[in-house]
Design a protein around this nucleic acid. Structure first.
Ligand code: SF4
Ligand code: SF4
Lengths: 134, 134
DNA sequence: CCTCAAGAAGACTTTTTTTATCTTTTTATG
DNA sequence: CATAAAAAGATAAAAAAAGTCTTCTTGAGG
């Protein structure tokens, strides 16, 4: 239960690697993919998602590649995970607005709310800077 | 991410309902299924899993059905979830023994260990008794 | 302006997991 | 023995995950 998909794992590996590189140096996707051992075409999709929400900045054409969209200490693991996996949802009923008809009287519901809150808290306290340096 | 499957949700609903019934009274699977709005054949499979690990006790034949395998305050939400969903695994590398070749130098690894520990902690503190009564 | 090197976008495929259902067997009751 | 119920196993449909392929767009450099 609660398992990160490969996509999520790949996403983290890729962007942590990027964070470990010199800040101003654009990185080739193919280089990142090779370094973190991820299928390049798959990682491309992931970085496209990153790019759309500004987690990374992309440059096209010759000499193009990727750099972080903001400083590594301003990007959290939660940002990365939610970018590719969607929100942290231990159960459907924690989604705002979408609740099951039992939720008002359900004693399990608050437990999932708590799980969600704790997990988000943990992931939000970890930045790419910490992950890249250690 | 981290979403409980329907099987897990059904499992919880079913056993919480069972915990809300008089302790000594065997419950028909079909009654439980109807009460918690779950496909009876699916719930049957779930309760078979419960039965195998002693979470519930089953009686076959006429007048048969299910009762809890032990007192409701001795069964935790973690017991129930892990019974049908398997262990709480935020990422492959938290499984004992099965670690990726990067795990020793990986800074993300401890984060998943922490997530696992926190989530297990939360679920393990909630008993069926609390859930059934409120 | 032409060519080449990158990423962007979208369609497509394969594999795995989830969500069931159906049939047959076993066990117990009366 | 007839009937009631759970156990077990096979099967199937649907959804999600994982990965590939092709085409398009953008930018640099000659
Ligand atoms: S029954 Fe309770 S735990 Fe399950 S989905 Fe509804 S509110 Fe959430
Ligand atoms: S790279 Fe790190 S987080 Fe990912 S599976 Fe390996 S040890 Fe775990």
């Amino acid at each position: 239960m609660m398992e990160l998909t490969r996509k999520g794992e790949y996403a983290i590996r890729g962007i942590v690697y990027l964070a470990s590189r010199p800040t101003d140096q654009v990185c080739l996707l193919s280089d990142i993919a090779a370094a973190v051992d991820v299928p390049p075409t798959f990682l491309a999709k992931i970085f496209q998602q990153f790019s759309k929400i500004g987690l990374v900045k992309s440059y096209r054409g010759t000499g193009g590649g990727f750099i972080l969209g903001r400083p590594a200490d301003k990007i959290t693991l939660l940002d990365v995970v939610e970018a590719v996996e969607g929100p942290i949802i231990p159960n459907r009923c924690v989604i705002n607005g979408i609740d099951c008809d039992r939720s008002s009287s359900c004693n399990v519901h608050p437990v999932w709310m708590n799980v969600q809150s704790q997990v988000r808290g943990i992931l939000d306290k970890v930045t790419l800077k910490e992950l890249a340096e250690g």
